[in-house]
Design a protein around this nucleic acid. Structure first.
Lengths: 196, 196
DNA sequence: GCAAAGGTAGACCGGTCTGTCTACTTTCTA
DNA sequence: TAGAAAGTAGACAGACCGGTCTACCTTTGC
């Protein structure tokens, strides 16, 4: 099981930095110091490896984000924690998630653009899981289901928006701004910041 | 000059649907019905073709968006037009910009992730040009330079966020929601909607 | 009309891709 | 300890990659 995991983590680093199609399996093998037969012992195909890599990243990323949010507190503090985490990610401040090359799930979706493709669907699953996480936090802030949905969507839009701005445009302060805008939206919704 | 343009538009369709690295030049040639020597007569390399394709799409997209915004009016109407345009794009309603496979510039940035790469920079240039467009419109809404910047950034974050939600998650109503959130932010900023 | 420019089909090249397989070694388990 | 499982290096195969080039044809411009 260790070789399999080693392959996954090595492949993730290469795919995340350079893209899936730009990195052939021979480069993964060389970087991992693993024989080709071993790779095919664990994975039926390159796509099976990619799928495993997406699932691995899904786990890492969601654990990390959840931990950062939990550490910041509940309700609005958790959301502030989310944007602080993104800010640290963009600015290479959190060893647990560095480096930043954009969102792996957005990047992989770009390369597997057909929504019916299993790998694209894994990326969508990841986004859905994050959405559920955020909606759960929003339920700590307001009892109104409609507001919950609306503001959870706001969080997600701002989250994805700032990731794209950071990656494509190199805007390293995008997360700070996104966080401020969320605060404004919460204020507009009559959900003023909780007292310390 | 016609063959060159034909190559660019053909390559755009293939690259936009399947990704740049997933489509080799031989597939572009076959789809375009053009000889390889002709391609290399017009472009030094595949990357030169990709760059030309990015520039072509930049032109199309910005012209389209600008037209849609202008058609909707000025100030807040222009911004409403921007999100209506995105909504039509996601929902395949505007023949001028169909089909929707996500944002070409986000997708290409994913495949050319190094910020120093010329192709990545072309994508960033595109985003900067859109930002300038939006900032110009925001100047019609408020004289305060700080508010202009802040709210223009809000538009951009929501724009990128809803494109990602639409593409990765298949959320076809993301643009409508993003537009509503912008309205809320304008309200929060004391920039109430202009009377009809 | 002629030469330059643009274009055709496609062979060729060295390289890389993904996946299969040989022969052998090492590790693990009963 | 023996056999199964996991792993090694790497050859092999067909396919495709991006780019170069031959021989020739068509179009354009002067």
């Amino acid at each position: 099981m260790d070789k399999r995991q080693h392959l996954v983590t090595t492949a993730f680093e290469l795919f995340y930095r350079e893209g899936v199609h730009a990195v052939g399996i021979n480069r993964v093998l060389e970087a991992a110091g693993v024989a080709k037969k071993t790779l095919y012992h664990h994975f039926d195909s390159k796509e099976a490896l990619v799928a495993a890599v997406v699932e691995y990243r899904d786990g890492c990323y969601r654990d990390w984000l959840l931990a950062r949010m939990a550490r910041a507190g509940t309700g609005q503090r958790a959301l502030a924690g989310l944007f602080a985490a993104l800010d640290d990610w963009f600015n290479d401040r959190d060893p647990a998630i560095r480096p930043f090359h954009g969102c792996f799930f957005i990047n992989v979706s770009a390369e597997y653009g057909d929504p019916a493709h299993p790998i694209h669907q894994l990326c969508a699953d990841h986004k859905r899981a994050i959405a559920a996480q955020v909606t759960g936090v929003m339920a700590q802030i307001t009892d109104d289901p409609e507001q919950q949905q609306r503001l959870a969507q706001a969080v997600l839009l701002l989250k994805e928006g700032c990731i794209v701005q950071a990656h494509v445009c190199g805007d390293r302060s995008a997360a700070v701004r996104a966080g401020e805008l969320l605060t404004a939206l919460l204020r507009e919704a009559g959900l003023a910041a909780e007292p310390a």
